[in-house]
């Protein structure tokens, strides 16, 4: 008898826990674009721990390299890497501006505005359910990070945009490879706009290209148009890897993003309002 009581008790606990989590799921679905308070609290609690863990590892790694490696060479290398990073971002933004055909005066004004608009950030977390969905960075609202800010990699390729939740020192990035992401793009030098959607496996689809369109071919470089009001125009998004014609109204076009996930470490958050600049 006591055994069966114990068994019943444990079963009730199991069912309660499962019920609690089903309730939890039901209050989150459908979530839409906004995060709920529960998600925000959990993110705020756990992301600093994650940040701490990554910082400790980085600290230990730096200590090792700093003391046992060539200290001076390392410092020079770090300085040069930062310089290259900054120049790459500047170059990318300038190229974007050139494509929008600004006058020299406007360009100079923009350059002044752009100074200090690139915020370097490090990745402290990847999405456990799908690494192509989202990233967490170690910069937050205290550093000036806001929702919908554009995020580029070291080479100035588009990675994604900032989404909720943004806490004081952490923020989440929705990658362009996420299935819920959408970026308005155009093949470089061709006037065929379309929308890139992630398909969840590291690749994207280029949607809404009419079946009769013959301009898009394999190898085309896709750049942002800025029509979506989030991403500034002229940033390299990816390359077309296959164009398939089928019976549907639109072509089936596969795209590989320009960023390489294995090289993502340092990212650039563009802290200026791109809509005002371009």
């Amino acid at each position: 008898m006591p055994f069966s009581l114990k068994k019943t008790k444990s079963l009730i606990i199991l069912l309660s826990l499962i019920f609690f989590q089903f309730v939890l799921i039901s209050i989150q679905v459908p979530r839409g674009d906004e995060t709920n308070y529960f998600e925000r609290v959990i993110f705020s609690v756990f992301s600093p721990i994650n940040n701490g863990v990554v910082s400790v590892f980085r600290g230990i790694g730096s200590l090792w390299k700093g003391y046992f490696g060539l200290h001076r060479v390392q410092k020079d290398n770090q300085r040069l890497q930062k310089e290259v990073f900054r120049l790459n971002q500047e170059n990318s933004l300038l190229r974007s501006m050139l494509r929008t055909s600004k006058s020299e005066k406007e360009m100079l004004d923009l350059l002044i505005e752009l100074e200090g608009s690139v915020l370097p950030a490090r990745i402290i977390g990847l999405d456990a359910s799908n690494v192509w969905k989202s990233l967490v960075i170690n910069k937050g609202s205290l550093d000036g990070v806001k929702k919908n800010m554009v995020v580029l990699d070291k080479q100035g390729h588009l990675v994604g945009r900032i989404v909720d939740p943004v806490t004081f020192k952490q923020a989440r990035i929705q990658m362009i490879t996420d299935t819920e992401s959408g970026v308005y793009v155009i093949p470089q030098g061709k006037n065929v706009p379309g929308i890139i959607n992630g398909i969840g496996n590291g690749q994207c689809n280029l949607e809404y290209i009419h079946a009769t369109d013959t301009l898009i071919v394999e190898g085309d470089r896709l750049i942002t148009t800025g029509f979506d009001g989030i991403y500034m125009p002229g940033v390299l998004v990816g390359h077309v890897v296959s164009v398939v014609e089928n019976t549907s109204l639109f072509k089936e076009i596969k795209v590989v993003p320009a960023f390489k996930i294995q090289n993502l470490d340092l990212l650039a958050v563009i802290t200026v309002d791109v809509n005002e600049l371009f």
């Binding site: 989150q28 959990i42 359910s129």
Partner: peptide, 29 residues
């Protein structure tokens, strides 16, 4: 035992969900 297993499972699952942009409770259950 099973009770601790269930509680710890729920906690670790939610912790794993916190890594993702996923819905809380999927890994938890």
């Amino acid at each position: 035992g099973e009770i601790y297993g269930a509680f710890l499972g729920a906690f670790c699952g939610l912790l794993q969900d916190s890594f993702s942009m996923s819905v809380f409770g999927v890994a938890g259950i």
